[in-house]
Amino acid sequence: MWKITYRVHRQKGNEPPHYETFQVEVDPEEYVLDGVEKIWASEDRSLTFRHACHHSTCGACGMRVNGVEKLTCITKIKDVVQDGGTLTVEPLRNFPVVSDLVVDLGPLYRKMAAVQAPAVHALSMTPWEGQNIAPPADIPMRSADEEYIRLPDCIECGICISACPVAATDPEYFGPAPLAAIQIQGLDKPELLALADSQEGVWRCHSAFECSAVCPSNVDPGRRIMDLRRQVSAKRLKLA
């Protein structure tokens, strides 16, 4: 077991935020979220944080760990701190803070709804699969007219928005996850083309690629935004 210090962002109601430290005994193989839950269970019952699935499929537990956006349920303690060291956990940036480590993801969910991000989609609709994953179209269902349905890679955790330097100054910018959701669907729907090809759409991105660096779910939003730009440009050239 390791003895480490959690330095935790605290904020209640309209009080100004401050940091509080907790000495915790943890198994270094545990995840950062486990440590936060342990603090709540045995040290301070007033600590608030978002979490649900604890294995990176729900997107609830995004936080900043030592300043970097992480999905805390899959971030091992030993990967971000050493025995005896200090670990800082803060809420995501660019969202309203509700309390302590909890942010309001409402703005992201409204945008995901606006871009009609599919909640489930056909397996074959997942381009750019990761390494060692068979191309999905090659895996058959029992009959030819059936298609596998899967949940998308994007878990709507808000981590990409938190890391985006443009989102920091422009809350109306659609941001990485919603734009990636447009790219996955393509630009056949005129309303999606209009959203992508707008001031708060693909042209607002300034190519910092922070979204792709922090995305815990292999969505690679940066590349998808760039591809969307290409698609929008192609549409415009054809129209001209």
Binding site: N66, G67, V68, P165, A168, S207, F209, V214, G222
Partner: peptide, 21 residues
């Protein structure tokens, strides 16, 4: 919030390219 453009904390390679730019 303009400071966030230049905040180097936790930035990756692409972020540094953006900051320098």
């Amino acid at each position: 919030n303009l400071w966030d453009w230049f905040n180097p904390k936790g930035r990756n390679v692409g972020g540094w390219a953006f900051i320098l730019n």
